[in-house]
Amino acid sequence: MSEHLLDMQSLIGGYGGNDILKGASLTVAQNEIVVIVGPNGAGKSTLMKSAFGLVKIRQGAVIFQGEDITNMRPDLVVRRGMSFVPQEKNVFPSMTVQENLEMGAYLRKDGGAAQQMERIFEIFPRLKERRKQAAGSMSGGERQMVAMGRALMLDPKLILLDEPTAGLSPLFIEQTFERIVEINKLGIGVLMVEQNAKQALEIAHRGYVLAMGRNRFEDTGAGLLANREIAEMFLGG
């Protein structure tokens, strides 16, 4: 048993052709915010998908709460308490906000869905106002809220966010990071990929720099921010 919530160990694999992940490793502890940064095409999204059986892992292991979940079916992973907000197409566009959230609770059989939805409306009051609106007709920022709300419906132990602030206005970016801290305070671990690396690392406990499917650096959020080399390469100086 490791003390880690999530432990990805030297993963090698991809989409059937060439390996995209070439030994990437990462851990997330209970209640941690962990950020992955790195250049485009580094395999950041692929690494996240590999936790949900969406990528074929040839070597290495994904351990969640002490259980081996390598290449496990996505619905079975979700059932174990890990949720995912993909980088794009992360809402059901023809369904209303409320229906999107209901789908998030699809696996829930304890009748706690209504209560959980109220909790999510407290975090994202905007969603409550717009509950009857089709998710596809909302702005990018609102859609990101729907996607996060959906992923929180099962009250997960850990939530994976792939570029939650991509394409948002500076104001929305600020708000999104605030929401993420708020979510983390509820006792939910956060693993996120971010292009707005500076802001993300400011709220992160730890961070990883991923390049070409491998770990390049790994340090506390503050440590990575203070690193000259990284600042030049990835944080825009």
Partner: peptide, 11 residues
């Protein structure tokens, strides 16, 4: 709407 998203939603 989106088969992949449905699967990672737990469906």
């Amino acid at each position: 709407d989106n088969m992949d998203l449905a699967r990672v939603t737990g469906i």
